[in-house]
Amino acid sequence: MIELKTPAEIERMHVAGRFVAEVLSEVGKLADVGVNLLELEHHARGMIERRGAESCYWDYSPSFGRGPFRNVICLAVNDAVLHGLPHDYVLRDGDVLTADLAVKIDGWAADSARTVIVGTAAEEDLRIIRATEEALEAAIEMARPGNRLGDISAAIWAVACDYGYPVNTEFGGHGIGRTMHEDLHVSNKGRAGRGMKLRPGLTLALEPWFARTTDQIIYDADGWTIRSADGSRTAHSEHTVAVTEGAPLVLTRRGDEGFVLG
């Protein structure tokens, strides 16, 4: 069931969204050569505990994972892109790190992801990160009343095509509100003018993610971490967005938006 949120409820989601943005900004600053992924997990966990927020990931047991997930942030490196299980790995110069975080505050959720480069940036890594960021902004622009869900998917796909990146359709965006995953799957590939008509009060987590040379995925032995099937590097950008009477409202916008260096 699709639940349209009131302006007051969207503002409560915005409280959670601002905190998610704060944590991801901190993680991006801390991601440096020699830092262990478990250090980033523990830092995020401490911020969540001090804020009195609730991790949407802790004890999460979806059909596609080997649950329960016992971490508060997803951290994926290089060819890993989704549901990265934090583990004992020390970041190296040139690594591409994706951090994905969802929390609830006072019963309302927000979800966001960003990809950063640790140390020295390779141009091809900067390029794929830019592609996901541009695709996300294009998707957000389509999140207006009267447009259709397919307009969002088509906007993401168009950017991917412009950059020459293939698009996986198994995982994409989703509804969000009282829980991290609500009804509506938002594919990263679609046709404009198709699907449900967007209405004010609809809240979505939009999340384009691309691998450089494949649309196929594989799972790590941990049952969670998803990688590109051919080992090519990846990037993932996500925001929680509310459809309003006017312009889309991005609930997880960061103050350091657009910076891809860790």
Rank of each mutant, 00 (worst) to 15 (best):
A122Q: 14
N71E: 13
H42S: 15
I105C: 02
G34R: 09
I226F: 03
D151N: 04
Y219G: 08
R178H: 12
A44R: 00
G193K: 04
R253V: 08
A121V: 12
D111R: 01
D230R: 08
E207M: 10
S232W: 00
A160M: 11
H185S: 11
N188F: 00
T203M: 14
G164R: 05
G94C: 05
S61W: 06
E41Q: 13
L249C: 09
V72C: 05
G195K: 01
I218R: 13
V20E: 03
S228K: 02
L126G: 13
A158D: 13
G164F: 07
A109K: 05
E3M: 14
G119W: 05
G231C: 06
R66N: 14
G231Q: 05
Y219R: 13
R70W: 04
S25W: 10
K29V: 14
V20T: 06
R70H: 10
I2E: 11
A242L: 06
I105D: 01
A211F: 05
L40P: 00
M142E: 11
F210V: 02
L85R: 14
L30D: 02
L24K: 04
S63K: 07
G255P: 07
E54H: 12
L24Y: 00
H174R: 09
S232L: 02
V103E: 00
T115N: 03
I48G: 01
R212E: 14
E134H: 10
E137G: 08
